[in-house]
Nucleic acid binder design. Structure first.
Length: 887
DNA sequence: GTAGGGTTAG
C-alpha cells in the first residue's frame, strides 16, 4: 500500500500516512516503511523527519538509502549517515563525506573520532588540514598544535597545505621556539622547495621577532630563484613588524625596480604604513599614484592605508580628498580620518566626523572611541575624555588595553587620581588577566599606565608598590621608565637616580631608551647632580654614539645648566646634529638662570637667523633672562615688541616676568602700574613677583597689598606667608609676624623646611637648618664659626631680619649661622680640594643674610661657590656674586 | 577541494 502511495501520492499524503502509523501504534515494520518512504521521496524537505532521526531507537532498524543523506550537513543528518553507513557496511567508503559533514556542522569531536579509525593516506590529510584551518580561523592556535601533534601520533604525514597553517599558529602565539623547531621538521621532510611553505616560514620568523632569520630564509629563496611576490610581501612585512620602515621601503624599492615585480593590494597596504611612519609623504604620494594607475586604490584596504598615510604625514587636506573619493568606506576609513584630525590637534574636525558616523549609522568600534578619548587626553581635557569613556561603555562598546592606556593618560593630564583609581578598578574587573603566573604583554601595558598615573597623580608610594609587585623579570623598559620618571617629576629625585642605577644592577639585559635617559637627566637637573649627570652623558655617548637623540640632548642642556655648568650646556648644544625650539629655549633659560643675559640674547639672535619664529615661550625665556641679569631696558623693549613685531600677545606669565623685572630693579611703582594695565586678571605668579620685589626693597604697604591679593587666590601657599612675614620682620613689626605665624598654625600651613645639599667628593651631603646629624657635624660648626669670625673682621654684619623670630639680635644671629646653605658651604670647604668649585643647591630661595655672608666668604677662600636656589644661580667669587643683586 | 603576505586607536 505504501509503495503505491509513494508512486502516486504527494508529500502531504506520505506525512499523513506516517502520522497515522504513529497514532495507531502500528507495527514496527510499518513505521520503518513510512520513514523510508518519506526519505526516499523528500530527503531534505522534511523537518519532521530531522527531529525523528535523532531518535536512535527508531533509526536503529530503519534502512535508509545512502544517496538520500549524502548532501545533508546538519549534525542530525551526519549522525544518521554515520549510523546507516555502519549498518550497511559502507563506513570506509563514506568516512570522508561524514568527516566533512561533521566539520561543517561544528562537530569536530566526531570528525576526529572517525579520523582516528581511518587508515592514514595522503589524500585524506585534507581533512586534518580542514580541522587545523578551522582551529586557526577560530583563533585557537593552541588547538592547531594539539591537532597537529594528534595527527602525527596517529601516523599521518602533514603535507604542504598543513605547514602554512601551523606556522601561522606559531606566529599568532609569537613562539619562536615552536616555529624554529617546526622549520627544522619542514627542512627534514623535504618541503624546502615549496614556496608556500617557505613563505610561511618567512612570515612566521617576522612575527616572532626573528628578523634576521626571516631575512635569511628570504635570501635563501632568492638564491634558489623560487621567490614570488608573496615572498617579497612577507619580508617587507617582517621589517614593518620590527618597525624598520626604512629597510621595508628599501626592499619595496628593490622589488619594484630591480626585480620588476608589480605590487599587489597587499604590497601596497604593507608599504603605505612605512611611508606614514617615516612621514615620507613624497614616497607615499608615489605609491598613491601607482595605486590609482593600477586601479588597486578601489580596494578598501588600500584606500584606508592611503588615507592613513596622508593623515600621518600631517596632510589632512590630502587625506580628506582621498577619503571623499572612496567608493566604498568602512569603519576603518572613518577611523583613519577621526584619528588623523585628533592627532593633528584638530579635535573639532574629529568630533564632527564622529557625529557624522553616528548620523550615517556607521557602527562605532573601539578604535573610534579610543581615538576621541586620546584626542581629549592629549589636549589635557581629561574630564571630556572620561565622559567619552562613559558614553562608550553605555553604548556597549568594550574598551580594550589601548583605550585604558589613553584613559589613564587623560587622568594624568588633569591630575584626576580618583578617576585613575576608577580606571584601575575597571582594569582589574575587565581587562587585566592576573590569574596566570606572570602578566601578559597587554597586562604589562596597563600596569605601566597605572604606575605612571599613580606616580604623576602624587601617589608615588602606590606607584612604587605596583612597581615592586611586578617581578623584575616581567618588567620592561617602560615599567622602569615610568617609575623613574614619576620620581623625577613628582617624588624624590634621589629615588629616581637610585632606581636608575638599580635597573642596571638588577637586569643586565635591559637597555634604557631615550625616555629613560631623559627621566634620569630630569632627576639630575632637579638635584643639580652634576657627577651623575655626566655619567649619564657618558653612557649616552658610549651607547648611542653618533645619534644622541634630540630629546636626550635637550635634557642634557637643561641638566648642565641647572647643575651650574652652562658652558658645557653650550657645548652640547653646539654639537647637536639637529635642534628644535626646545633646544634653543633650554639654552637661553640656562644663560638666564646664571644671570648671563647678554649670552641669552646672543642665542636669541642666532635662533632668529636659523630662522625659527619666536613664540610665547621664547619671549618668556628672554624676559626671564633680562630680569635675572638686570637688563631692564632690553626687557621692556622685548615686551613692547613681542606683540607689535612678532604677533605674540603677552599672557599673565609675561606680565609676571615684567613685574619681576621692574621689581628687582626697585621700580615698584611701575610694576604696580603694569599690573593695573593688565588686560586679564592677575594670576598668583604676578602677585608673587610683586611680593618678592617688596621683600627685596622693604616695601611693607605694597607687600601687604600683594600678599592679600595672593592669599585670596591661593591660601595654601607657604611661600607667600613666609615672604610677608619676612617683610614685617624687616620692619620690626613683630605683632604682624606673630599674627602670620598664628594664621599659619591655625590653618595648618607649614613653612617648608629649608634644605641644602652639596656635591661632595664621595657623594651628596644634605643639610637642614640647625642640622647636627652629619658625622662631621662638630668640625662643620667649628669651620663655620671660624669663617664668621673672619668675615666679621672685614665688614660682615649679620642681617638679623632674616631670622623669623622675635628674639634679641644675638640669638637671631646664632640661628642665622645654622642656615642649611651655610652648613653646606662649611662642609664643602672642609672636605673638597682647595680651589675645587663648591656646588650647593637649595630648595628655597637663598636667605639674604646667607647671600651676604657667602659673598664675604668668597673673598677669603679660593673656591668658587656656585649656589643654585629656587630662583636662579649665584656664582660667588672674590667677594662678589654674579646675580648683581637681581634675585 | 585546503595554502603564504594586509588597513585604523597608544
Amino acid at each position: 500500500m505504501i509503495k503505491d502511495r509513494v508512486r502516486t501520492e504527494t508529500y502531504r499524503d506520505a506525512i499523513m500516512q506516517h502520522q497515522s502509523s504513529i497514532a495507531g501504534k502500528q507495527l514496527h515494520h510499518r513505521y520503518r516503511c513510512s520513514i523510508s518512504m518519506l526519505l526516499r521521496c523528500f530527503p531534505i524537505k522534511s523537518k519532521l523527519l530531522q527531529s525523528q532521526f535523532t531518535n536512535t531507537r527508531l533509526l536503529s532498524c530503519a534502512t535508509i538509502p545512502i544517496t538520500a543523506l549524502k548532501e545533508c550537513n546538519s549534525l542530525a543528518h551526519a549522525k544518521l549517515l554515520h549510523q546507516q553507513s555502519i549498518m550497511q557496511g559502507l563506513l570506509f567508503h563514506l568516512a570522508t563525506n561524514l568527516i566533512g559533514t561533521y566539520i561543517a556542522s561544528n562537530s569536530t569531536a566526531y570528525a576526529i573520532l572517525l579520523l582516528e579509525r581511518l587508515p592514514p593516506s595522503p589524500s585524506s590529510v585534507f581533512w586534518w588540514n580542514q580541522l587545523i584551518r578551522r582551529a586557526l580561523h577560530l583563533g585557537s592556535p593552541r588547538d592547531v598544535f594539539t591537532l597537529y601533534r594528534q595527527m602525527k601520533s596517529l601516523g599521518w604525514t602533514p603535507d604542504h597545505y598543513t605547514f602554512p597553517f601551523v606556522f601561522k599558529a606559531c606566529a599568532n602565539l609569537s613562539s619562536l621556539s615552536l616555529g624554529a623547531s617546526l622549520h627544522a621538521t619542514v627542512s627534514r621532510s623535504g618541503f624546502a622547495s615549496n614556496v608556500f611553505v617557505c613563505n610561511a616560514v618567512v612570515s612566521m620568523y617576522g612575527k616572532c621577532g626573528a628578523l634576521r632569520h626571516a631575512h635569511n630564509m628570504f635570501d635563501d629563496l632568492c638564491h634558489r630563484g623560487i621567490q614570488d611576490l608573496v615572498s617579497w610581501n612577507s619580508v617587507v612585512s617582517a621589517y614593518m613588524w620590527a618597525s624598520d620602515a626604512n629597510t621595508a621601503l628599501a626592499l619595496f624599492h628593490k622589488m619594484t625596480t630591480r626585480h620588476l615585480m608589480s605590487p599587489d593590494v597587499i604590497s601596497l597596504v604593507n608599504i603605505l604604513p612605512a611611508c606614514a611612519s617615516l612621514a615620507a609623504s613624497l614616497r607615499g604620494r608615489q605609491v598613491h599614484g601607482f595605486s590609482i594607475r593600477s586601479g588597486l586604490v578601489d580596494d578598501v584596504f588600500v584606500g584606508n592605508a592611503v588615507v592613513d598615510m596622508y593623515a600621518k604625514c600631517g596632510k589632512m587636506e590630502e587625506a580628506n580628498k582621498v577619503f571623499q573619493r572612496m567608493k566604498f568606506k568602512d569603519v576603518v576609513s572613518w577611523n583613519a580620518m577621526v584619528t588623523g584630525y585628533s592627532q593633528a590637534g584638530r579635535l573639532e574636525h574629529a568630533l564632527s566626523l564622529f557625529e557624522r558616523m553616528t548620523e550615517e549609522n556607521i557602527e562605532l568600534d573601539v578604535v573610534t572611541w579610543t581615538a576621541v578619548i586620546t584626542g581629549y587626553a592629549q589636549r589635557g581635557q581629561g574630564c571630556e575624555a572620561l565622559d567619552v569613556f562613559r558614553q562608550m561603555c553605555d553604548c556597549g562598546s568594550r574598551p580594550n588595553v589601548v583605550t585604558l592606556v589613553s584613559l589613564l593618560s587623560a587622568c594624568v593630564s588633569v591630575g584626576a587620581l580618583l578617576h585613575g583609581k576608577e580606571t584601575h578598578c575597571y582594569a582589574i574587573k575587565f581587562i587585566l588577566n592576573l590569574d596566570g603566573p606572570d602578566p601578559g604583554a597587554d597586562d604589562l601595558k596597563v600596569i605601566n599606565g597605572l604606575i605612571d598615573m599613580y606616580a604623576k597623580c602624587q601617589s608615588t608610594e602606590v606607584a612604587r608598590k605596583m612597581f615592586d609587585s611586578v617581578s623584575p623579570k616581567d618588567r620592561d623598559v617602560v615599567t622602569w621608565t615610568v617609575m623613574i620618571g614619576g620620581y623625577a617629576q613628582h617624588g624624590d629625585a634621589n629615588n629616581a637616580l637610585q632606581l636608575f642605577s638599580g635597573m642596571f644592577k638588577m637586569d643586565k639585559s635591559i637597555k634604557p631608551n631615550d625616555f629613560t635617559l631623559s627621566c634620569a637627566l630630569v632627576a639630575c637637573a632637579r638635584l643639580a647632580a652634576l657627577r651623575f649627570g655626566r655619567q649619564v652623558h657618558a653612557y649616552v655617548l658610549r651607547n648611542f654614539y653618533g645619534s644622541v637623540m634630540l630629546f636626550v640632548a635637550n635634557c642634557l642642556i637643561d641638566m648642565y645648566s641647572k647643575s651650574g655648568d652652562v658652558d658645557t650646556a653650550q657645548i652640547v648644544f653646539d654639537n647637536m646634529p639637529q635642534r628644535n625650539a626646545v633646544s634653543w629655549t633650554s639654552l637661553m633659560t640656562g644663560y638666564g638662570m646664571h644671570g648671563r643675559g647678554e649670552d641669552a640674547l646672543r642665542v636669541f639672535d642666532e635662533m632668529r637667523k636659523v630662522p625659527l619664529v619666536p613664540d610665547g615661550i621664547t619671549f618668556l625665556v628672554v624676559l626671564y633672562a633680562c630680569s635675572h641679569s638686570g637688563m631692564v631696558d632690553h626687557g621692556i623693549n622685548f615686551f613692547n615688541r613681542m606683540s607689535k613685531d612678532f604677533g605674540v600677545d603677552p599672557g599673565p606669565e609675561h606680565y609676571a616676568c615684567m613685574v619681576d623685572l621692574w621689581g628687582r630693579a626697585g621700580r615698584l611703582g611701575e610694576a604696580m602700574k603694569l599690573i593695573n594695565e593688565m588686560p586679564m586678571e592677575p594670576t598668583p605668579v604676578v602677585w608673587v613677583a610683586l611680593l618678592s620685589a617688596c621683600r627685596l626693597h622693604s616695601n611693607v604697604e605694597l607687600g601687604e597689598f600683594a600678599a592679600n591679593r595672593l592669599l585670596e587666590l591661593e591660601s595654601g601657599n607657604d611661600g607667600s606667608y613666609t615672604l610677608l612675614s619676612n617683610i614685617y620682620a624687616n620692619a620690626r613689626r613683630w605683632k604682624d609676624v606673630a599674627r602670620i605665624r598664628y594664621t599659619m598654625k591655625r590653618t595648618g600651613i607649614k613653612k617648608r623646611p629649608g634644605c641644602s645639599w652639596i656635591q661632595g667628593r664621595k657623594g651628596v651631603a644634605t643639610f637642614y637648618v640647625g642640622d647636627r646629624s652629619h658625622p662631621q657635624s662638630q668640625q662643620i660648626y667649628e669651620t663655620l664659626a671660624d669663617l664668621i669670625q673672619r668675615i666679621k673682621a672685614i665688614g660682615y654684619v649679620p642681617q638679623t631680619s632674616f631670622a623669623l623670630h622675635d628674639v634679641d639680635d644675638e640669638e637671631k644671629g646664632d640661628l642665622l649661622f645654622e642656615h642649611s646653605e651655610k652648613l653646606a658651604l662649611a662642609y664643602g670647604i672642609l672636605t673638597l680640594h682647595p680651589r675645587a668649585p663648591i656646588r650647593i643647591t637649595k630648595n628655597l630661595r637663598i636667605c639674604g643674610d646667607c647671600h651676604s655672608a657667602i659673598t664675604y666668604i668668597s673673598k677669603i677662600i679660593e673656591h668658587e661657590i656656585i649656589l643654585r636656589d629656587s630662583s636662579r644661580f649665584h656664582h660667588f667669587k672674590n667677594g662678589s656674586c654674579s646675580c648683581k643683586g637681581y634675585w
